[in-house]
Design a protein around this nucleic acid. Structure first.
Ligand SMILES: [Mn+2]
Ligand SMILES: [Mn+2]
Ligand SMILES: [Mn+2]
Ligand SMILES: [Mn+2]
Lengths: 221, 221
DNA sequence: AATATTTGTTAGATTAATCTAACTTATATA
DNA sequence: TATATAAGTTAGATTAATCTAACAAATATT
């Protein structure tokens, strides 16, 4: 049985392995920074996780989840995303409110609860932020994601998921009526600062910053 | 902000205050036994809760929740019973499975979550075991409860709630088709051992032990 | 009232998770 | 290559929650 804290470290390692796309290794400092603890603390926990054969690493070396560790972490991610979906779909939470609560709910221990929840939600494929939900067997559809900033003038796309899931960005998207699935058309790319002039759904075109364009994943049409 | 553990102590004190009907005080040993810890541990926690003004007590004296402590405990009980109801109503858990999971869920911190959950469930009055659910304002209908064992030959009643909520008893009730609301008629009381011969709903009369009759609360008709 | 029993507290230790400060190893740079 | 910087570890301390063993107070019983 894993502690609440151990689970958080595992999930962090999984998330970081997604982030560092090319190679899934991580360092102690990166891990500590992600979790908001000091490197010394991360080192201590790493030893414990290594003891439990959930991570593989040696002193001063790179950190990697073992198969077992990855499996455990995927279960936690599955719970997180199912709970986020539940909060949105069944309890009318907005997509900027769900993460905080799901951080707590993901640690509830009950196989049956997760599976029944998934059933209640109709086996959703994606969470409210457009991220794929791992299946009970541990599989998760590997999706190729394109940043809005990678598109060219004249391209059309639909919003697939949000890269930056901060409440601030999510609320801004809400204000612009940009949601998962919304159709976007790139009218103009401003080379000077990387900003874009885009049409959102049927609305009037408007300008968004490069930071914005680098925070949204889209599906090119 | 209260820790998971502090919340459990508060809830225990509230439950014990219901149990010790006449006076709501409790002792260190009783509290420790209830929580499955040693008396020394309970004493330590008591000091902390006193420091936070959630309980009032002095060395070697009786333990009582303060108004603040009682309020906090009621919120936890409210969450527990709402989650139990959710698990039964929405996720098809049986009434002997819900308690364990609700013990975890009751500690999730989110005012909005609780209130939305209550709304989703249609503002239920009672949990799956027939226990009243405290309202958001902290009030809980004070119900006079009669034990089945207090009834006489010829009396008729409906099942109001279960006193013993152990999985073993709940499963036995399930087998006998005794549920909340089921109509019972006392055919005969055996003075020798306190057992009863009762009709359950429309079924054939059958005998139940005194222990059984002392574990069920009923509403006399 | 004297003594025995029950109830409750204290002292000292342990474990998990965290920190700071000091140290070590690896990597980058001149 | 020598040295500076970054990355990672260790030692020692702290806090929360727990325990055991010993002690103290309150209550019950002769
Ligand atoms: Mn999230
Ligand atoms: Mn999400
Ligand atoms: Mn319960
Ligand atoms: Mn209940």
């Amino acid at each position: 049985m894993l502690s609440y804290t151990e689970e958080n470290y595992l999930k962090a390692l999984l998330k970081l392995s997604f982030q560092n796309e090319d190679k899934p290794e991580t360092g102690t400092n990166e891990m500590a920074a992600y979790l908001g603890v000091k490197p010394a603390t991360a080192t201590d926990m790493l030893k414990k996780l290594k003891e439990k054969e959930l991570v593989s690493y040696k002193k001063y070396g790179k950190i990697l989840l073992t198969e077992m560790g990855k499996k455990s972490a995927m279960v936690i991610l599955r719970k997180h995303r199912l709970w986020e979906t539940f909060l949105c779909e069944k309890l009318d939470f907005s997509w900027d409110e769900v993460h905080e609560v799901a951080e707590q709910l993901e640690h509830i221990q009950s196989q049956k609860l997760v599976d029944k929840l998934e059933e209640l939600l109709g086996f959703p494929q994606f969470d409210p932020h457009g991220d794929p939900i791992p299946k009970a067997n541990g599989e998760m559809p590997e999706i190729t994601r394109t940043l809005l900033s990678e598109l060219q003038e004249g391209d059309t796309c639909t919003v697939a998921s949000v890269k930056d899931t901060s409440a601030m960005f999510l609320q801004y998207l809400e204000k612009l009526k940009v949601r998962i699935g919304t159709r976007l058309k790139i009218k103009e790319v401003i080379d000077f600062d990387g900003s874009m002039y885009i049409a959102i759904g049927e609305g009037e075109p408007r300008s968004v910053s490069m930071k914005f364009a680098e925070s949204l994943f889209v599906q090119k049409l």
